[in-house]
Design a protein around this nucleic acid. Structure first.
Lengths: 187, 187
DNA sequence: CATAATATGGAATGCGGAATCCGGATTCCG
DNA sequence: CGGAATCCGGATTCCGCATTCCATATTATG
Protein backbone atom coordinates (compact mmCIF):
# COMPACT_ATOMS: atom_id res chain seq x y z
CA UNK A 1 0.00 0.00 0.00
CA UNK A 2 2.68 2.49 1.00
CA UNK A 3 5.04 3.88 -1.62
CA UNK A 4 8.00 1.67 -2.40
CA UNK A 5 10.89 3.38 -0.69
CA UNK A 6 13.47 1.82 -2.94
CA UNK A 7 12.55 4.27 -5.67
CA UNK A 8 14.88 6.50 -7.52
CA UNK A 9 14.36 10.19 -7.59
CA UNK A 10 12.18 11.32 -10.48
CA UNK A 11 14.35 12.18 -13.38
CA UNK A 12 15.07 15.85 -13.77
CA UNK A 13 14.19 15.93 -17.44
CA UNK A 14 10.85 14.43 -16.62
CA UNK A 15 10.14 17.21 -14.22
CA UNK A 16 11.27 19.85 -16.65
CA UNK A 17 8.95 18.44 -19.29
CA UNK A 18 6.05 18.44 -16.91
CA UNK A 19 6.55 22.14 -16.34
CA UNK A 20 6.79 22.80 -20.03
CA UNK A 21 3.53 21.03 -20.64
CA UNK A 22 1.74 22.92 -17.91
CA UNK A 23 3.10 26.18 -19.19
CA UNK A 24 2.12 25.51 -22.79
CA UNK A 25 -1.31 24.27 -21.86
CA UNK A 26 -1.95 27.26 -19.65
CA UNK A 27 -1.03 29.63 -22.45
CA UNK A 28 -3.03 27.83 -25.11
CA UNK A 29 -6.10 27.43 -22.95
CA UNK A 30 -6.01 31.06 -21.96
CA UNK A 31 -5.62 32.07 -25.57
CA UNK A 32 -8.30 29.99 -27.20
CA UNK A 33 -10.25 28.03 -24.64
CA UNK A 34 -10.27 24.37 -23.84
CA UNK A 35 -10.91 23.06 -27.30
CA UNK A 36 -7.24 22.95 -28.13
CA UNK A 37 -5.89 19.66 -29.43
CA UNK A 38 -3.58 17.55 -27.34
CA UNK A 39 -1.08 17.34 -30.19
CA UNK A 40 -1.02 21.11 -30.30
CA UNK A 41 -0.26 21.31 -26.61
CA UNK A 42 2.55 18.83 -27.06
CA UNK A 43 3.95 20.70 -30.02
CA UNK A 44 3.99 24.02 -28.24
CA UNK A 45 5.50 22.39 -25.18
CA UNK A 46 8.24 20.98 -27.38
CA UNK A 47 7.39 17.49 -26.26
CA UNK A 48 6.05 14.30 -27.81
CA UNK A 49 2.42 13.36 -27.42
CA UNK A 50 3.47 10.28 -25.55
CA UNK A 51 5.22 12.38 -22.96
CA UNK A 52 2.25 14.64 -22.58
CA UNK A 53 0.13 11.61 -21.84
CA UNK A 54 2.55 10.25 -19.28
CA UNK A 55 2.17 13.45 -17.29
CA UNK A 56 -1.56 13.76 -17.71
CA UNK A 57 -3.21 10.50 -18.62
CA UNK A 58 -6.22 12.24 -20.08
CA UNK A 59 -7.20 15.44 -21.75
CA UNK A 60 -9.58 16.03 -18.91
CA UNK A 61 -6.88 15.50 -16.33
CA UNK A 62 -4.80 18.21 -17.97
CA UNK A 63 -7.66 20.65 -18.09
CA UNK A 64 -8.59 19.96 -14.54
CA UNK A 65 -5.05 20.42 -13.32
CA UNK A 66 -4.85 23.83 -14.88
CA UNK A 67 -8.34 25.02 -14.08
CA UNK A 68 -7.90 24.05 -10.48
CA UNK A 69 -4.70 25.96 -10.23
CA UNK A 70 -6.15 29.04 -11.86
CA UNK A 71 -9.23 28.90 -9.69
CA UNK A 72 -7.13 28.80 -6.56
CA UNK A 73 -5.43 32.00 -7.72
CA UNK A 74 -8.72 33.74 -8.27
CA UNK A 75 -10.05 32.73 -4.92
CA UNK A 76 -6.94 33.75 -3.05
CA UNK A 77 -6.83 37.15 -4.68
CA UNK A 78 -10.54 37.62 -4.13
CA UNK A 79 -10.26 36.75 -0.48
CA UNK A 80 -7.70 39.46 -0.08
CA UNK A 81 -10.12 42.01 -1.47
CA UNK A 82 -12.69 41.01 1.09
CA UNK A 83 -10.64 42.60 3.77
CA UNK A 84 -11.22 46.11 2.50
CA UNK A 85 -13.22 48.38 4.77
CA UNK A 86 -16.15 49.23 2.58
CA UNK A 87 -17.93 45.98 1.80
CA UNK A 88 -19.86 47.36 -1.16
CA UNK A 89 -16.62 48.51 -2.67
CA UNK A 90 -15.18 45.13 -1.82
CA UNK A 91 -17.93 43.50 -3.81
CA UNK A 92 -17.21 45.78 -6.72
CA UNK A 93 -13.52 45.01 -6.59
CA UNK A 94 -14.28 41.36 -6.28
CA UNK A 95 -16.32 41.32 -9.45
CA UNK A 96 -13.81 43.44 -11.28
CA UNK A 97 -11.09 41.07 -10.30
CA UNK A 98 -13.02 38.13 -11.63
CA UNK A 99 -13.67 40.07 -14.82
CA UNK A 100 -10.02 40.93 -15.18
CA UNK A 101 -8.99 37.33 -14.89
CA UNK A 102 -11.66 36.01 -17.21
CA UNK A 103 -10.99 38.55 -19.90
CA UNK A 104 -7.38 37.41 -19.99
CA UNK A 105 -8.24 33.74 -20.00
CA UNK A 106 -10.76 32.34 -22.38
CA UNK A 107 -10.51 28.91 -20.88
CA UNK A 108 -11.40 30.18 -17.45
CA UNK A 109 -14.38 32.09 -18.74
CA UNK A 110 -15.67 28.83 -20.16
CA UNK A 111 -15.11 27.00 -16.93
CA UNK A 112 -16.59 29.69 -14.74
CA UNK A 113 -19.71 30.09 -16.80
CA UNK A 114 -20.41 26.40 -16.48
CA UNK A 115 -19.27 26.11 -12.90
CA UNK A 116 -21.71 28.75 -11.69
CA UNK A 117 -24.51 26.62 -13.00
CA UNK A 118 -23.51 23.17 -11.79
CA UNK A 119 -25.78 22.40 -8.91
CA UNK A 120 -23.41 19.88 -7.44
CA UNK A 121 -22.35 20.93 -3.97
CA UNK A 122 -18.95 19.55 -4.91
CA UNK A 123 -18.12 22.53 -7.04
CA UNK A 124 -15.49 23.94 -4.74
CA UNK A 125 -14.60 26.94 -6.79
CA UNK A 126 -18.13 28.21 -6.84
CA UNK A 127 -18.59 27.50 -3.17
CA UNK A 128 -15.46 29.45 -2.31
CA UNK A 129 -16.38 32.43 -4.44
CA UNK A 130 -19.88 32.54 -3.06
CA UNK A 131 -18.60 32.27 0.47
CA UNK A 132 -16.59 35.39 -0.13
CA UNK A 133 -19.58 37.10 -1.65
CA UNK A 134 -21.74 36.06 1.27
CA UNK A 135 -19.58 37.83 3.75
CA UNK A 136 -19.43 41.00 1.68
CA UNK A 137 -23.17 41.03 1.16
CA UNK A 138 -23.89 40.59 4.80
CA UNK A 139 -21.58 43.37 5.85
CA UNK A 140 -22.87 45.66 3.14
CA UNK A 141 -26.45 45.02 4.12
CA UNK A 142 -25.61 45.97 7.67
CA UNK A 143 -24.40 49.29 6.36
CA UNK A 144 -27.37 49.66 4.09
CA UNK A 145 -25.30 49.82 0.93
CA UNK A 146 -26.86 46.69 -0.51
CA UNK A 147 -30.53 45.76 -0.64
CA UNK A 148 -32.00 43.29 1.79
CA UNK A 149 -33.33 40.85 -0.74
CA UNK A 150 -29.86 40.29 -2.13
CA UNK A 151 -28.34 36.84 -1.76
CA UNK A 152 -25.34 34.91 -3.00
CA UNK A 153 -27.61 33.42 -5.61
CA UNK A 154 -27.77 36.86 -7.18
CA UNK A 155 -24.02 37.15 -7.25
CA UNK A 156 -23.88 33.67 -8.69
CA UNK A 157 -26.03 34.72 -11.62
CA UNK A 158 -24.17 37.95 -12.09
CA UNK A 159 -20.88 36.11 -12.34
CA UNK A 160 -22.34 33.58 -14.72
CA UNK A 161 -23.57 36.41 -16.91
CA UNK A 162 -20.29 38.19 -16.60
CA UNK A 163 -18.44 35.15 -17.86
CA UNK A 164 -20.80 34.93 -20.82
CA UNK A 165 -20.45 38.60 -21.67
CA UNK A 166 -16.69 38.32 -21.63
CA UNK A 167 -16.54 35.03 -23.46
CA UNK A 168 -18.72 36.28 -26.28
CA UNK A 169 -17.30 39.74 -26.34
CA UNK A 170 -20.84 41.00 -26.00
CA UNK A 171 -19.83 44.43 -24.77
CA UNK A 172 -17.95 46.33 -22.11
CA UNK A 173 -17.93 44.03 -19.12
CA UNK A 174 -17.00 46.78 -16.71
CA UNK A 175 -20.18 48.53 -17.61
CA UNK A 176 -22.03 45.25 -17.11
CA UNK A 177 -20.70 45.08 -13.57
CA UNK A 178 -21.71 48.67 -12.93
CA UNK A 179 -25.26 47.94 -13.96
CA UNK A 180 -25.42 44.76 -11.95
CA UNK A 181 -24.11 46.44 -8.83
CA UNK A 182 -26.57 49.28 -9.21
CA UNK A 183 -29.24 46.65 -9.39
CA UNK A 184 -28.22 45.33 -5.99
CA UNK A 185 -28.44 48.69 -4.23
CA UNK A 186 -31.22 49.24 -1.75
CA UNK A 187 -34.33 50.59 -3.39
CA UNK B 1 -32.49 32.53 -63.00
CA UNK B 2 -36.13 31.48 -63.05
CA UNK B 3 -37.16 27.98 -62.05
CA UNK B 4 -37.38 25.47 -64.88
CA UNK B 5 -41.09 25.35 -65.54
CA UNK B 6 -41.04 21.87 -67.03
CA UNK B 7 -40.69 20.40 -63.58
CA UNK B 8 -43.01 18.04 -61.83
CA UNK B 9 -44.55 19.01 -58.57
CA UNK B 10 -42.42 17.99 -55.62
CA UNK B 11 -43.53 14.62 -54.40
CA UNK B 12 -45.95 14.76 -51.53
CA UNK B 13 -44.03 12.26 -49.44
CA UNK B 14 -40.93 14.37 -49.83
CA UNK B 15 -42.73 17.35 -48.45
CA UNK B 16 -44.19 15.36 -45.61
CA UNK B 17 -40.76 14.10 -44.68
CA UNK B 18 -39.34 17.57 -44.70
CA UNK B 19 -41.94 18.63 -42.19
CA UNK B 20 -41.26 15.63 -40.02
CA UNK B 21 -37.59 16.43 -39.97
CA UNK B 22 -38.17 20.04 -39.05
CA UNK B 23 -40.56 19.04 -36.32
CA UNK B 24 -38.22 16.44 -34.86
CA UNK B 25 -35.23 18.74 -35.03
CA UNK B 26 -37.12 21.56 -33.39
CA UNK B 27 -38.16 19.33 -30.52
CA UNK B 28 -34.75 17.78 -30.03
CA UNK B 29 -32.90 21.06 -30.23
CA UNK B 30 -35.26 22.67 -27.77
CA UNK B 31 -34.88 19.74 -25.44
CA UNK B 32 -31.14 19.31 -25.41
CA UNK B 33 -29.47 21.98 -27.46
CA UNK B 34 -27.73 21.81 -30.77
CA UNK B 35 -25.33 19.00 -30.01
CA UNK B 36 -27.82 16.35 -31.03
CA UNK B 37 -26.62 13.83 -33.60
CA UNK B 38 -27.97 13.84 -37.10
CA UNK B 39 -28.80 10.16 -36.86
CA UNK B 40 -30.87 10.90 -33.78
CA UNK B 41 -32.82 13.58 -35.60
CA UNK B 42 -33.46 11.17 -38.42
CA UNK B 43 -34.54 8.43 -36.05
CA UNK B 44 -37.00 10.65 -34.21
CA UNK B 45 -38.30 12.01 -37.48
CA UNK B 46 -38.88 8.44 -38.61
CA UNK B 47 -36.72 8.99 -41.64
CA UNK B 48 -33.43 7.69 -43.01
CA UNK B 49 -30.25 9.67 -42.62
CA UNK B 50 -30.01 9.96 -46.35
CA UNK B 51 -33.36 11.68 -46.49
CA UNK B 52 -32.42 14.05 -43.73
CA UNK B 53 -29.35 15.07 -45.67
CA UNK B 54 -31.23 15.58 -48.88
CA UNK B 55 -33.46 18.11 -47.15
CA UNK B 56 -30.67 19.82 -45.29
CA UNK B 57 -27.33 19.19 -46.89
CA UNK B 58 -25.51 20.02 -43.74
CA UNK B 59 -25.94 19.89 -40.03
CA UNK B 60 -25.41 23.60 -39.97
CA UNK B 61 -28.09 24.16 -42.59
CA UNK B 62 -30.59 22.36 -40.43
CA UNK B 63 -29.70 24.31 -37.34
CA UNK B 64 -29.83 27.56 -39.20
CA UNK B 65 -33.22 26.81 -40.70
CA UNK B 66 -34.69 26.22 -37.29
CA UNK B 67 -32.93 28.98 -35.42
CA UNK B 68 -33.99 31.49 -38.01
CA UNK B 69 -37.58 30.48 -37.71
CA UNK B 70 -37.54 30.60 -33.92
CA UNK B 71 -35.82 33.95 -33.94
CA UNK B 72 -38.48 35.42 -36.16
CA UNK B 73 -41.07 34.34 -33.62
CA UNK B 74 -39.24 35.98 -30.77
CA UNK B 75 -38.85 39.20 -32.65
CA UNK B 76 -42.44 39.37 -33.73
CA UNK B 77 -43.73 38.76 -30.23
CA UNK B 78 -41.28 41.23 -28.80
CA UNK B 79 -42.31 43.91 -31.24
CA UNK B 80 -45.86 43.54 -30.07
CA UNK B 81 -44.80 44.27 -26.51
CA UNK B 82 -43.18 47.47 -27.61
CA UNK B 83 -46.54 49.00 -28.15
CA UNK B 84 -47.45 49.05 -24.49
CA UNK B 85 -47.86 52.44 -22.91
CA UNK B 86 -45.24 52.36 -20.23
CA UNK B 87 -41.90 51.89 -21.98
CA UNK B 88 -40.08 50.76 -18.82
CA UNK B 89 -42.69 48.10 -18.33
CA UNK B 90 -42.35 47.28 -22.00
CA UNK B 91 -38.66 46.69 -21.50
CA UNK B 92 -39.38 44.43 -18.58
CA UNK B 93 -41.93 42.47 -20.56
CA UNK B 94 -39.56 42.29 -23.45
CA UNK B 95 -36.84 40.71 -21.34
CA UNK B 96 -39.28 38.39 -19.65
CA UNK B 97 -40.52 37.26 -23.00
CA UNK B 98 -37.02 36.46 -24.15
CA UNK B 99 -36.42 34.62 -20.91
CA UNK B 100 -39.59 32.64 -21.29
CA UNK B 101 -38.65 31.51 -24.76
CA UNK B 102 -35.07 30.67 -23.89
CA UNK B 103 -35.98 28.70 -20.81
CA UNK B 104 -38.19 26.50 -22.96
CA UNK B 105 -35.63 26.08 -25.68
CA UNK B 106 -32.10 25.10 -24.84
CA UNK B 107 -31.00 25.41 -28.43
CA UNK B 108 -32.15 28.99 -28.63
CA UNK B 109 -30.36 29.91 -25.44
CA UNK B 110 -27.18 28.66 -27.02
CA UNK B 111 -27.77 30.56 -30.19
CA UNK B 112 -28.77 33.78 -28.48
CA UNK B 113 -25.84 33.80 -26.13
CA UNK B 114 -23.47 33.57 -29.06
CA UNK B 115 -25.46 35.86 -31.31
CA UNK B 116 -25.35 38.72 -28.85
CA UNK B 117 -21.58 38.59 -29.04
CA UNK B 118 -20.99 38.29 -32.77
CA UNK B 119 -19.78 41.65 -33.92
CA UNK B 120 -20.86 41.07 -37.47
CA UNK B 121 -23.44 43.63 -38.52
CA UNK B 122 -25.07 40.78 -40.41
CA UNK B 123 -26.52 39.27 -37.28
CA UNK B 124 -30.10 40.15 -38.07
CA UNK B 125 -31.65 38.69 -34.97
CA UNK B 126 -29.52 40.77 -32.69
CA UNK B 127 -30.09 43.86 -34.77
CA UNK B 128 -33.82 43.40 -34.63
CA UNK B 129 -33.93 42.81 -30.90
CA UNK B 130 -31.72 45.78 -30.21
CA UNK B 131 -33.82 47.96 -32.46
CA UNK B 132 -36.80 47.17 -30.30
CA UNK B 133 -34.81 47.83 -27.19
CA UNK B 134 -33.58 51.13 -28.60
CA UNK B 135 -37.05 52.46 -29.00
CA UNK B 136 -38.10 51.41 -25.51
CA UNK B 137 -35.01 52.90 -23.95
CA UNK B 138 -35.47 56.19 -25.68
CA UNK B 139 -39.09 56.51 -24.66
CA UNK B 140 -38.33 55.48 -21.11
CA UNK B 141 -35.53 57.97 -20.83
CA UNK B 142 -37.88 60.69 -21.93
CA UNK B 143 -40.11 59.76 -19.02
CA UNK B 144 -37.18 59.49 -16.67
CA UNK B 145 -37.79 55.85 -15.86
CA UNK B 146 -34.46 54.72 -17.26
CA UNK B 147 -31.07 56.30 -16.68
CA UNK B 148 -29.47 58.51 -19.29
CA UNK B 149 -26.30 56.54 -19.70
CA UNK B 150 -28.23 53.49 -20.77
CA UNK B 151 -27.77 52.21 -24.31
CA UNK B 152 -28.69 49.20 -26.40
CA UNK B 153 -25.24 47.87 -25.66
CA UNK B 154 -26.37 47.47 -22.06
CA UNK B 155 -29.41 45.53 -23.10
CA UNK B 156 -27.24 43.46 -25.37
CA UNK B 157 -25.07 42.40 -22.45
CA UNK B 158 -28.03 41.79 -20.22
CA UNK B 159 -29.58 39.47 -22.77
CA UNK B 160 -26.30 37.67 -23.28
CA UNK B 161 -26.03 37.17 -19.54
CA UNK B 162 -29.65 36.13 -19.35
CA UNK B 163 -29.08 33.44 -21.93
CA UNK B 164 -26.10 32.16 -19.97
CA UNK B 165 -27.98 32.12 -16.69
CA UNK B 166 -30.80 30.16 -18.25
CA UNK B 167 -28.58 27.80 -20.20
CA UNK B 168 -26.54 26.89 -17.15
CA UNK B 169 -29.43 26.91 -14.75
CA UNK B 170 -27.41 29.29 -12.65
CA UNK B 171 -30.39 30.57 -10.70
CA UNK B 172 -33.75 32.25 -10.99
CA UNK B 173 -33.62 34.17 -14.24
CA UNK B 174 -36.61 36.33 -13.37
CA UNK B 175 -34.71 37.61 -10.42
CA UNK B 176 -31.74 38.23 -12.72
CA UNK B 177 -33.91 40.41 -14.90
CA UNK B 178 -35.21 42.29 -11.85
CA UNK B 179 -31.69 43.10 -10.77
CA UNK B 180 -30.62 44.12 -14.24
CA UNK B 181 -33.59 46.42 -14.71
CA UNK B 182 -33.01 48.02 -11.33
CA UNK B 183 -29.49 48.64 -12.49
CA UNK B 184 -30.79 50.61 -15.46
CA UNK B 185 -32.96 52.94 -13.40
CA UNK B 186 -31.93 56.55 -13.09
CA UNK B 187 -29.61 57.10 -10.17
C1' DC C 1 31.71 3.37 -16.44
C1' DA C 2 28.01 -0.26 -16.65
C1' DT C 3 23.46 -1.15 -16.35
C1' DA C 4 18.98 -1.05 -14.57
C1' DA C 5 15.29 2.07 -14.23
C1' DT C 6 12.79 5.72 -16.47
C1' DA C 7 11.37 8.69 -19.86
C1' DT C 8 10.65 9.98 -24.69
C1' DG C 9 8.55 10.58 -29.27
C1' DG C 10 5.47 9.78 -32.71
C1' DA C 11 3.47 6.22 -35.68
C1' DA C 12 -0.45 3.39 -35.20
C1' DT C 13 -4.99 2.53 -33.40
C1' DG C 14 -9.75 3.34 -31.91
C1' DC C 15 -13.69 5.87 -32.01
C1' DG C 16 -17.53 9.11 -32.52
C1' DG C 17 -20.06 11.25 -35.70
C1' DA C 18 -20.84 13.97 -40.09
C1' DA C 19 -21.56 13.30 -44.87
C1' DT C 20 -21.86 10.27 -49.17
C1' DC C 21 -23.51 6.68 -52.27
C1' DC C 22 -26.46 3.82 -54.67
C1' DG C 23 -29.71 -0.24 -55.29
C1' DG C 24 -34.41 -0.39 -54.50
C1' DA C 25 -39.02 1.68 -53.44
C1' DT C 26 -42.53 5.40 -54.54
C1' DT C 27 -44.89 8.67 -56.90
C1' DC C 28 -46.22 11.35 -60.75
C1' DC C 29 -47.94 11.86 -65.48
C1' DG C 30 -49.88 10.73 -69.91
C1' DC D 1 -51.38 1.07 -66.53
C1' DG D 2 -46.15 1.77 -67.64
C1' DG D 3 -42.09 3.71 -67.06
C1' DA D 4 -39.49 7.89 -66.10
C1' DA D 5 -38.53 11.05 -62.58
C1' DT D 6 -37.88 11.34 -57.71
C1' DC D 7 -37.09 10.00 -53.33
C1' DC D 8 -35.71 6.62 -49.62
C1' DG D 9 -32.77 4.24 -46.31
C1' DG D 10 -28.88 3.06 -43.96
C1' DA D 11 -24.46 0.79 -44.76
C1' DT D 12 -20.27 2.80 -45.72
C1' DT D 13 -16.74 6.16 -46.28
C1' DC D 14 -14.18 9.96 -44.28
C1' DC D 15 -12.23 12.67 -40.97
C1' DG D 16 -10.65 14.75 -36.78
C1' DC D 17 -8.88 13.64 -32.51
C1' DA D 18 -7.83 11.38 -28.19
C1' DT D 19 -5.25 7.65 -26.49
C1' DT D 20 -1.97 3.60 -26.71
C1' DC D 21 2.29 1.14 -27.70
C1' DC D 22 6.93 0.23 -27.99
C1' DA D 23 11.54 0.68 -29.91
C1' DT D 24 14.93 3.99 -28.68
C1' DA D 25 17.20 7.45 -25.80
C1' DT D 26 18.37 9.49 -21.31
C1' DT D 27 19.38 9.51 -16.46
C1' DA D 28 20.31 7.83 -11.81
C1' DT D 29 23.03 4.79 -9.06
C1' DG D 30 26.85 2.02 -7.22
Amino acid sequence: MSTPQARRKTRTDAERNRDRVLEAARALFAESGYDVQMSEVARVAGVGIGTLYRKFPTREALIEAIAEHRAADIIAAARRLTEADDPAQGLARFLHHVGEVLSDDRGMSEVVEKAMGSSEPREETREALLAIAAELIERAQARGTVGHGVTTADVNMIICGLAAVIRNAAGDWRRYIEVALDGLRPR
